[in-house]
Computed example of a mutant assay.
Amino acid sequence: MELLNHDSFLQRLAALFESSKDHGSIWLTHKRLIHDGEDVAMAQADPADDTREYPCLVRVTDGGDAKFSTHVNSGELQKFHAAYGALLKASMGTLRKRDKKREKQRVEQAARRKKKMTDPVVVDGPKRGNGRKKRQRQLKAEAKQLESQRKAKEREAAGAKSASAS
């Protein structure tokens, strides 16, 4: 991972946003930077005595070749976040809006499938003569429904078994 100063970090981040405009993802990570052995100091009895300032580590990756980061000291934080926020606002305008209509259709389809699986299939009509084909279709639908209910129970049992094993 390449460590950059603030200006070159923001320039490369802008270029990365531009290159992944059509497709791709970018992961941004912010965390407090600690060095080996300093984490033990966190267990002090009186935290008011601790006057150390920890820098913020900002990392960027696209999951491939681009991996770079920067350290931001607390005194530079306001200036950095102003430039960083402006860059994010400018880059987020290219995001696509979620297709809520398609999501709603998927939820409705799942509800219909679940209802179809739980509603009992009524088998009526004569075994022979007129209406026989209709009865056969109903019997086939009932068998299919019982099979789907059995598979759903097996999935639930497998899910419960794997959850209890974890």
Score class of each variant (00 low, 15 high):
2 E>A: 09
3 L>C: 14
3 L>M: 11
4 L>Y: 05
5 N>R: 08
6 H>N: 12
7 D>K: 14
8 S>D: 15
8 S>Y: 00
8 S>W: 03
11 Q>K: 11
12 R>E: 13
13 L>H: 03
15 A>V: 05
15 A>P: 02
16 L>Q: 10
17 F>S: 13
17 F>Q: 03
20 S>D: 12
22 D>A: 13
24 G>A: 03
24 G>R: 01
25 S>L: 06
25 S>N: 08
26 I>Y: 01
26 I>A: 03
28 L>K: 07
28 L>R: 09
29 T>Y: 06
31 K>F: 06
34 I>H: 11
38 E>F: 12
39 D>Y: 11
44 Q>E: 13
46 D>T: 13
46 D>E: 10
49 D>I: 01
50 D>W: 04
52 R>I: 01
53 E>P: 02
54 Y>L: 04
56 C>E: 10
59 R>N: 14
59 R>Q: 13
60 V>M: 03
60 V>D: 05
62 D>P: 03
62 D>F: 00
63 G>C: 08
66 A>H: 15
68 F>H: 05
68 F>I: 00
71 H>L: 12
73 N>F: 10
75 G>H: 05
75 G>R: 03
76 E>V: 07
77 L>Q: 07
78 Q>I: 04
78 Q>Y: 02
79 K>Q: 15
81 H>E: 12
81 H>L: 07
82 A>G: 11
83 A>K: 12
83 A>L: 09
85 G>C: 04
87 L>Y: 06
88 L>S: 02
89 K>I: 02
90 A>D: 14
90 A>L: 01
90 A>S: 11
91 S>I: 01
94 T>K: 06
95 L>I: 02
100 K>N: 10
100 K>G: 09
101 K>C: 12
102 R>D: 15
103 E>S: 09
105 Q>L: 07
106 R>N: 15
106 R>Q: 15
107 V>C: 00
110 A>F: 08
122 V>L: 00
124 D>Y: 01
125 G>K: 00
127 K>F: 07
129 G>P: 08
131 G>M: 09
136 Q>C: 05
140 K>Q: 09
140 K>G: 00
142 E>T: 05
142 E>W: 00
147 E>Y: 02
147 E>C: 03
151 K>H: 13
151 K>W: 07
156 E>G: 01
156 E>M: 04
156 E>W: 00
160 A>Y: 04
160 A>C: 04
165 A>Q: 09
